[in-house]
Design a protein around this nucleic acid. Sequence first.
DNA 1: CTAATCTGTAACAGTGGATGTTACGGAATG
DNA 2: CATTCCGTAACATCCACTGTTACAGATTAG
Lengths: 149, 149
Amino acid sequence: MNASTRLTIALHILTLLASNPEETVTSEYIAGSVNTNPVVIRRLLGLLRTAGLVVSQSGIGGGWRLTGPPDSITLLAVRRAVNEGSPFNMHHQQPNPSCPVGRHIQNALVEVYARAERALEAELAGATVGQLLESVQSRHRDAGESNKG
Amino acid sequence: MNASTRLTIALHILTLLASNPEETVTSEYIAGSVNTNPVVIRRLLGLLRTAGLVVSQSGIGGGWRLTGPPDSITLLAVRRAVNEGSPFNMHHQQPNPSCPVGRHIQNALVEVYARAERALEAELAGATVGQLLESVQSRHRDAGESNKG
DNA sequence: CTAATCTGTAACAGTGGATGTTACGGAATG
DNA sequence: CATTCCGTAACATCCACTGTTACAGATTAG
């Protein structure tokens, strides 16, 4: 395994909330669109709420809503909200410090890895949930579809 | 877990081979520097050989060598050699196709994810094992160290 | 030719993160 | 007070990754 599906599912959730700006949406409804268990959705929504991206309401008529306009939510903010880790990992065991390469390779790698991750994050910072919704709606129009759910 | 340590260890191995250009190095010796089991090293070296980055020799005096100059080996080539996957993953289960968001979200995400991964790969393509070796040796000099192993 | 060295790889155990599921308490509504 | 929905603990699976043992094959020294 390399990456989790948390970012993907969180973006699915947020796009769905963005497409229903007037209503609260329940975790069960969202789970129906994502095709998974409602608890999985609530766990992710909990992370998104901690990040201030959504609010919840208990009881009848309750559910979830975005706290702000979809265009204000960057994919980078979502990535951080769901605790996606770095695409790079260091050794599990510390390398041998009596070998020059073993002693210094991690410090050398940290710099390169940081540059690469910054480049990735810069791309994610340039995209928003609003753009995702646009993209989805555009594809929906192009296909001449009419389902909703 | 998010990423494996394969890229890190492969780069450790290649930097070690680059620092011993005159000799063949055994998997056992490398394992001593990485601080793991020789079979783990051989597995990775097998992938690196498939990618044409190293060659091996059996028997007494055998071991491993680089096939080319360290400056010709980009971190991107190594990343691909060790089969590191994408930093992004789609849903495990297909989303609900009767929901517009469920039907189109993956196509929308593929584009953004591809842009982000290209940015990451561009950074990795700009760094080489030769630069890593330089970085390690520079740190070694700065620390006034003299160990070797 | 034989012993020693080292690769190549199969096989298996253990670990840990991620996901899916059930269960149930708490909050809000009518 | 019954219903709805969140919040979260608890547990079961699953699966990639890592570590380890074992052994066959290749190569070389003597």
